[in-house]
Computed example of a mutant assay.
Amino acid sequence: MHNFKELEIWKISRKFCSKVYLATNNFPQSEKFGITNQMRRSAVSIPSNIAEGASRHSNKDFCRFLEIAIGSCYELETQLLISNDLGFLNDASNHSLLYELNRIIMMASKFMSSLKKNDLK
């Protein structure tokens, strides 16, 4: 079992979630229950699944929750690209968010590899 509040990936993904909320504040009101809501839910899902996985007693279970978090990252990546296509996000904001999101994906993937290696020992 891990203390999720001490995990760097959780800290980064939590801060990233706030950035998604701020970025979607300027989306059209007509999208409040559309892409805005979906993007926020995807963003919240990332640190939430990391936290839930950290509570599990096996690395295998934790890896499963990290996989779900990565899935939420890819879902959010798609939504960011669509938002940019629709003109809801400018290119600079979109690029910055995508860069941070890919960093989270890489961190989660490396962490999963580390957990799997520890299971082999």
Rank of each mutant, 00 (worst) to 15 (best):
S13E: 01
K5A: 07
N102D: 14
N84I: 09
L80Q: 14
N25W: 10
E8S: 05
A92T: 14
H2D: 10
S13D: 00
F4R: 07
E77R: 06
R40C: 06
S72Y: 02
E52N: 12
R41Y: 05
E67W: 02
F33W: 15
R56T: 02
S113A: 15
S83V: 03
N90Q: 02
G71S: 05
D91Y: 15
D61H: 10
N102Y: 13
K60I: 07
I46V: 13
T24D: 00
I105N: 06
E31P: 06
T36S: 09
K32Y: 08
N84C: 12
P28Y: 00
E100Y: 11
P28V: 00
A54N: 14
E8Y: 09
S114L: 01
L97P: 03
A23G: 08
L81G: 12
S13I: 05
I68F: 03
E6C: 10
A92H: 13
W10E: 05
S109P: 08
A43T: 01
A92Y: 07
R40P: 00
T78G: 12
E8K: 09
M39G: 04
I46S: 04
L81R: 15
K60E: 08
L120N: 11
K5R: 15
A69I: 04
L81K: 14
A108R: 00
E75L: 02
N118S: 15
S55Y: 12
C63A: 13
L81C: 09
N26Q: 12
T78I: 09
G53V: 02
D91C: 13
F65G: 02
G87R: 03
Y21P: 05
I68R: 00
S18A: 15
G53R: 04
N37A: 11
E31T: 00
D91K: 14
S109H: 11
Q79C: 01
K32L: 14
L81I: 15
A51M: 03
I35Q: 05
R41Q: 10
K117W: 07
E6D: 15
E100N: 12
A43V: 06
K19C: 10
F65S: 01
